[in-house]
Amino acid sequence: MADHKLKKTAARFLLKCLLPLAIFLGWEIAVTYGDIPPLLLPKLAKVGADFVKYSTNGELFHHIFISLRRCAIGFFIGSTLGIVFGILLGWFKRLEDFFDFTLNFSRAIPKTALAPLLIVWFGFGDFPKVMLIGLAAFFYTVIPTLEGVQNVDSLLVKSARSMGAGDRQIVFGVILPAAMPSIYAGIRIAATSSFVILLFVEIISGNSGLGFLLEDARESLNTSTMFMTLIVVGILGFSLDWLVRYTEKKVMPWQRGKTLSR
């Protein structure tokens, strides 16, 4: 029985690997037999060699570390503020009215459009980058949180109140978990866009980080390094998404096994 299941899992894994392997194979065939200048598409071996080179001299991990740090700080501060703010706005109607126009106007500006201004104000250091990511994370979480809080079933609040819960216990014990699916939808978008914005600002104004590595490779016409960095970025983005979905399951165990489809 277990053996059968194992076989099935293995078969599915192989199926999932098929397309990526085919792409690499096609790539290798194209650069070996096709007449493609290495500047456009380097040999796979060259990309691998670059990976080894950048790994052993520590440069790759240096840039990864810097990028991840910026992304993490911006994301955590931004989304925490977004969630806190969203809950407050959802709880206090007056506060929501007060911030209504401001919030909806600033939300409508794509955060990347603020990059030039932040560079003028704060230069090329870490601060404007982290701030831009923070702003994006804030706006991506504040609205779903607000809506999640407003859509909490009032019956649940009544339930808690009838058993003697006070406002604080209702906010943390009822509103927060009840709005959690919506909050998490915001967190997921915030995480992905944090990463997008990180690379964007590093490309336009970096002297370190993965985005800088890409831009630097472009300037020195080093396509293989560019591909190496892209693959690393892909892996990081993939892991980030996995991490968010993993914590989502941990934070909301009651959602497990709940389906809408048949």
Partner: peptide, 16 residues
């Protein structure tokens, strides 16, 4: 004194 109430639509906490 706090009356206890059982709601028509239960009002159970889905996360508990």
């Amino acid at each position: 004194t706090k009356p206890a109430i059982v709601f028509q639509h239960y009002g159970l906490f889905p996360w508990l």
